[in-house]
Amino acid sequence: MTDVTHEPQLVPLNGIFADDYSQLLIPVMSDDTLAVVAEKIAHHSEGKRVRKRDKAKVVYHEGRKVPMHLTVAEAGIGPLDHVRVDYED
């Protein structure tokens, strides 16, 4: 049996940041951590339509808070899934 190395894959996500009114299609990679995903999604809203706060960000997928050290693939997040990024309480 041959050892197959899986290359990172592009995973387009439907993402929204905090209380922004606009959901966006955000391209991320399957090996991005959720911390990276949070920054990629926040980039489009934070300081523009959502006030920037000095707080850590968290990612929610299917109603659950996802550990920020996991990758997109490890968290089971797939193409066109909806994720919400918000500030930690």
Results as ranks from 00 to 15, higher is better:
38 A>D: 14
38 A>R: 10
39 E>H: 11
39 E>P: 01
39 E>D: 09
39 E>M: 09
39 E>I: 14
40 K>C: 07
41 I>S: 05
41 I>N: 03
41 I>A: 12
42 A>Q: 02
42 A>I: 01
42 A>G: 02
43 H>C: 04
43 H>D: 06
43 H>F: 04
44 H>F: 11
44 H>C: 14
45 S>R: 03
45 S>A: 11
45 S>T: 08
45 S>G: 02
45 S>L: 04
46 E>C: 10
46 E>M: 11
46 E>G: 13
46 E>L: 04
46 E>V: 12
46 E>R: 05
47 G>C: 03
47 G>F: 01
47 G>N: 03
47 G>I: 15
48 K>H: 12
48 K>P: 08
49 R>C: 10
49 R>N: 07
49 R>K: 06
49 R>V: 14
49 R>W: 04
49 R>I: 03
50 V>R: 03
51 R>T: 15
51 R>C: 12
52 K>R: 04
53 R>S: 02
53 R>F: 07
53 R>H: 05
53 R>N: 02
54 D>F: 01
55 K>D: 00
55 K>F: 01
55 K>R: 09
55 K>Y: 00
55 K>H: 02
56 A>P: 14
56 A>Q: 08
56 A>L: 15
56 A>I: 10
56 A>R: 04
56 A>C: 08
56 A>D: 07
57 K>P: 00
57 K>H: 13
57 K>V: 00
57 K>Y: 00
58 V>A: 02
58 V>S: 10
58 V>G: 08
58 V>T: 15
59 V>N: 15
60 Y>K: 15
60 Y>T: 06
60 Y>F: 15
61 H>K: 13
61 H>Q: 08
62 E>T: 11
63 G>Y: 12
63 G>T: 01
64 R>V: 15
64 R>F: 11
64 R>E: 10
64 R>M: 14
65 K>M: 15
65 K>F: 01
65 K>C: 05
65 K>Y: 07
66 V>K: 13
66 V>H: 00
67 P>A: 10
68 M>G: 01
68 M>W: 00
69 H>T: 03
69 H>G: 15
69 H>Y: 09
70 L>R: 03
70 L>I: 02
70 L>Q: 14
71 T>F: 14
71 T>G: 08
71 T>N: 15
71 T>V: 06
71 T>D: 14
72 V>Y: 01
72 V>T: 13
73 A>V: 01
73 A>W: 05
74 E>G: 06
74 E>W: 06
74 E>T: 04
75 A>T: 02
75 A>V: 07
76 G>H: 12
76 G>P: 10
76 G>C: 03
77 I>R: 08
77 I>E: 13
77 I>S: 04
77 I>Y: 09
78 G>P: 04
78 G>K: 07
78 G>Y: 09
78 G>I: 04
79 P>V: 12
79 P>I: 03
80 L>Q: 03
80 L>V: 09
81 D>L: 15
81 D>P: 07
81 D>G: 15
82 H>Y: 01
82 H>F: 15
83 V>Y: 03
83 V>S: 01
83 V>A: 12
83 V>F: 02
83 V>L: 08
83 V>W: 04
84 R>D: 07
85 V>A: 04
85 V>G: 00
86 D>M: 06
86 D>T: 10
86 D>Q: 03
86 D>P: 00
87 Y>L: 00
89 D>P: 08
89 D>E: 05
89 D>T: 03
89 D>L: 05
89 D>Y: 05
